[in-house]
Structures are given as structure tokens and as C-alpha cells.
């Protein structure tokens, strides 16, 4: 049955309203503080080591993002891997169920808009907030680094940095879509938040263990067949790539470390005759294309599930 009228009429209005709510909320102030501390912390912690590398590395600027301070402090990129999901979950976990709990849902849906507009507007508002925040953080870190190093970043460094920024927004989008999915499926905001955090914990801390346990079961090593070792490693890698965190980590690695030539297993025979040195930007992009596509597919897939569930939900509370 065809419905008449645009499905997205009113989406812009919903988005602007939600964006206003997001940006003026106390939650946002806290997240901003977190972001500011992260950025400043990352730069101050790594700047000494980065300064020492000036003159040795043509991509010294990117080191700001990737240098880890010994065992204690992870690199800025790794830190974002933890932080972005938290921010995205904070923005999305109560977006739909709060309308039900505040009894505003049926009143808003009685206005001349479709449900599509409401969900889409809310998602876009969350994504925009996330993007604004990550852009601010990115500019803040780069600016601080310019001041402290006294060097401007080169053209390719800027390109790689931007690609990293876009990948981190896509990564945030996946977590935002997950949080919204839970906000559609659970009426209680606390349950939705806990469910989102449980998934985040699983991927951030426990996924490696899961992979370690599952791999030998799915692909046992046959001691008489050396190729089976290869197979086992490949299965393990495929499993670990189910996690958006792995996808993001591999993406940042390829973008921020131009020396990265492969994200999988490389045999010595394949390396024969290779000239060591950084890859051009376009080759790095080609290298992580599957990872970036995977992240985007996660966003679209999760949003679609949330969308279908929301369309089928009864409006009455």
C-alpha cells in the first residue's frame, strides 16, 4: 500500500530540535569536558617523544595520534577507540524511549509527519553532534601540536588526518545506531544504556578472549599440515573483525601509519623484493577500504533494524 506525502517531511525540524537539546544538555557539558581532557592529555603526554622524532620521520605529525606513552597511557587513536562509543551511547540510549516515557510520542506523531522523519531526524542530530565534537577535538589536538612542535603539518598528513576523522565519525555512527536500536527496543532508558554498555564492554575488553577461545574450536591446527596454521590465523582474524573496535583500530593504523602495508598475515615470500617505505595515501585508502565499508555497513544495518522495529511499534504507551 502506498502512502502519500514525503516520508522525510519534518525530519529537518526534528533534527534541529534534537540538536538544540543535545547541545544544551548537561550531558553534553560533561562530554565536552571529557573530550577536552583527552585532547590535552594526549598532546602533553606524547609531545616529548614526538619532538625527539622530528627530522627522522616524514610523518612526524601523525605520531601525535599514534604514540603510546609506555604501558600506562594508550595512544590518542586507541583512546578514541574507547571514548567514541561512550559518547555515542550517551547521545543515543534514550532518544526514542524518552518520547514514550514523557508521553510525547503520540502527540508528536499526530502532527503531519511520518515516523520515518522522527527516527531519521534523531539519528542525524546525534551524528551531527558527534561529528561537531570530533571535529572540535581534532582541530584542538592539531592546533596544540602546531604550537608545541612549531611545525605545520604537511599536505599528506592533513589528508591522512582527515581520513582518520571521517573514519572515527563512521565508528561513532555505528555505536550511535546501536544505542538507538536499544532505545527503540527497550522502554526503560536505563535498560537501554546498560545493554549498550554491555555490548561495548564485550567488544572493547572481552572480544579478544572470545576470539582466542573460539578460533581453535572452529579451525583446529593440524600438526601434520602446516597450511592449517594459516587457516587458523585467518579464521581468528575474521572473527576479530566482527568487532567494530577491530575495524576502527585497523583503519587508524593504516591511515596514521603510512608504513602499514598489510593488515593481515604476510608471508616472507610475499615480502621478497618489496621496497620498504611509506605507502602513498591512495594505497592506504585501498588497504582499509573493506574496513571502512564494514563500519558503514554496520551503521546502515543497525539503523535499518531500529527503523523496522520502530515502524512496527504500537504508539500507545
Amino acid at each position: 500500500m502506498r502512502r502519500e506525502g514525503s516520508a522525510l517531511a519534518g525530519a529537518g525540524t526534528v533534527m534541529m530540535k534534537e540538536l538544540g537539546d543535545n547541545l544544551s544538555s548537561t550531558r553534553m557539558r560533561l562530554l565536552e569536558l571529557l573530550v577536552f581532557l583527552t585532547g590535552a592529555g594526549a598532546v602533553f603526554a606524547t609531545i616529548g617523544e614526538v619532538r625527539d622524532a622530528v627530522g627522522e620521520d616524514p610523518f612526524v605529525f601523525l605520531r601525535i595520534f599514534t604514540t603510546a606513552k609506555g604501558e600506562t597511557l594508550p595512544s590518542f587513536a586507541a583512546f578514541l577507540g574507547f571514548l567514541i562509543p561512550i559518547v555515542a551511547i550517551a547521545l543515543g540510549f534514550d532518544s526514542v524511549n524518552s518520547e514514550f516515557n514523557g508521553k510525547t510520542m503520540s502527540r508528536i506523531l499526530a502532527q503531519p509527519i511520518y515516523r520515518d522523519a522522527l527516527l531519521f531526524g534523531k539519528f542525524m542530530a546525534g551524528l551531527t553532534t558527534l561529528a561537531v565534537m570530533l571535529c572540535a577535538l581534532w582541530i584542538f589536538v592539531i592546533g596544540l601540536a602546531i604550537l608545541m612542535l612549531g611545525l605545520p603539518p604537511g599536505g599528506e598528513e592533513v589528508m591522512r588526518g582527515l581520513a582518520f576523522l571521517i573514519a572515527s565519525i563512521a565508528y561513532g555512527g555505528a555505536w550511535l545506531a546501536l544505542a538507538m536500536l536499544f532505545s527503540v527496543s527497550f522502554r526503560s532508558a536505563a535498560t537501554a544504556a546498560l545493554a549498550s554498555l554491555a555490548v561495548w564492554l564485550l567488544f572493547a575488553f572481552f572480544w579478544n578472549m572470545v576470539v582466542t577461545v573460539l578460533t581453535p574450536v572452529l579451525a583446529p591446527v593440524d600438526p601434520y599440515n602446516p597450511m592449517s596454521v594459516l587457516h587458523t590465523v585467518e579464521v581468528g582474524q575474521a572473527l576479530s573483525r566482527l568487532s567494530p573496535n577491530t575495524l576502527f583500530a585497523e583503519t587508524t593504523l593504516a591511515f596514521l601509519n603510512p608504513g602499514t602495508r598489510s593488515l593481515g598475515l604476510v608471508l616472507t615470500s610475499q615480502m621478497q623484493g618489496a621496497i620498504s617505505g611509506p605507502l602513498p595515501f591512495s594505497e592506504s585508502v585501498a588497504l582499509v577500504w573493506p574496513q571502512v565499508t564494514g563500519l558503514l555497513a554496520t551503521v546502515i544495518g543497525l539503523f535499518t533494524v531500529a527503523y523496522v522495529m520502530f515502524q512496527r511499534q504500537e504508539v500507545r504507551a
Partner: peptide, 20 residues
């Protein structure tokens, strides 16, 4: 069912337990 936007433009609705 097919023209909900036209209907909702002309109808004002106050739900049971209205919320703002």
C-alpha cells in the same frame, strides 16, 4: 491509512495522558 499527513493536518489530537 494512505493519506495520513492530510488527515493529521486537519485533526488535532489530545492523547490520554498528554505529555510535553
Amino acid at each position: 491509512l494512505r493519506q495520513p499527513l492530510e488527515v493529521k493536518r486537519r485533526v488535532g489530537y489530545m492523547p490520554d495522558q498528554v505529555g510535553f
